[in-house]
Write a protein that binds this DNA or RNA. Sequence first.
DNA 1: CTCATTGTAACCGCTATGGTTACATCCATT
DNA 2: AATGGATGTAACCATAGCGGTTACAATGAG
Lengths: 143, 143
Amino acid sequence: MSANSRLTIAAHTLAWMGLNESFGHPIATSEQVSESVNTNPVVIRRLLGQLREAGLVESRRGAGAGWSLARPLESMTLLDVYEAVEPGPLFGMHRTPPNAECPVGFGIQPAMQSVYDEIEDTLRAKLTRTTIAQVLRDVLATR
Amino acid sequence: MSANSRLTIAAHTLAWMGLNESFGHPIATSEQVSESVNTNPVVIRRLLGQLREAGLVESRRGAGAGWSLARPLESMTLLDVYEAVEPGPLFGMHRTPPNAECPVGFGIQPAMQSVYDEIEDTLRAKLTRTTIAQVLRDVLATR
DNA sequence: CTCATTGTAACCGCTATGGTTACATCCATT
DNA sequence: AATGGATGTAACCATAGCGGTTACAATGAG
């Protein structure tokens, strides 16, 4: 499917910010996060920008500024993060419309769409049940 | 996520073959299927090749030859098709390993993996519940 | 022998992804 | 007012996946 890593990196970032905050540091820089994620700061800033649009984090410019959580991690579900960073559907339809003269070509898209809709609904239900706070607890329990 | 259309096209192909079979034509050519799907025959052959590896269809070469269903559509679930054409996972991990010196970097992958595993399990459960026979019935009911 | 068909390699254009550089903009501090 | 650390964003790159296309060898029925 050519899966991307954005949900993983976003969860990593938010969990890191939560832990950092619990240490008394409510402000994080993209540089700091990028060191934990092991990537380029610009990648983190792009991603944090999407999270900001979704209202999950806030940012301030200038010296000593950076990023902070907009609400408690207990209230942030993986669905919130997923919707912030993954706009598209899970399964694609035909690139070019199928042959509508053929009964199968005519009816296949609505038939498959209803299957896909149901699957995405259950995916969302699953994602709703895990908060970033829970992810952070699982992360810290790994050691 | 950059979703592909393979599950859709494979379901379309199998449903078409089932309908064709019910008309007394157990053999389909990639050319015929490609006309309903509205694509190139080679695309269909590549896909049918994967379905053959999964034991869902059979093929014969030569003049007048082609592809046939290996078992009844009632016994073919969307999970069978999904596994035949979609090898990879739904969500990706970090491209390069995160910083294991950081508690979050150290624990994030197992934590996320268990979430992803659970999601894929429910996806599979959903896909198991729909057969291609049911898809074909839905398709024909659209008209 | 002929010819329809599979099987497969090779290549193309398009898009997504993530990494990188560069630089304008902002703003706290001095 | 100047400095410097940080965001915000554009631009470019390499890589990979996807689906379309051409080409052609291999097969096997008639």
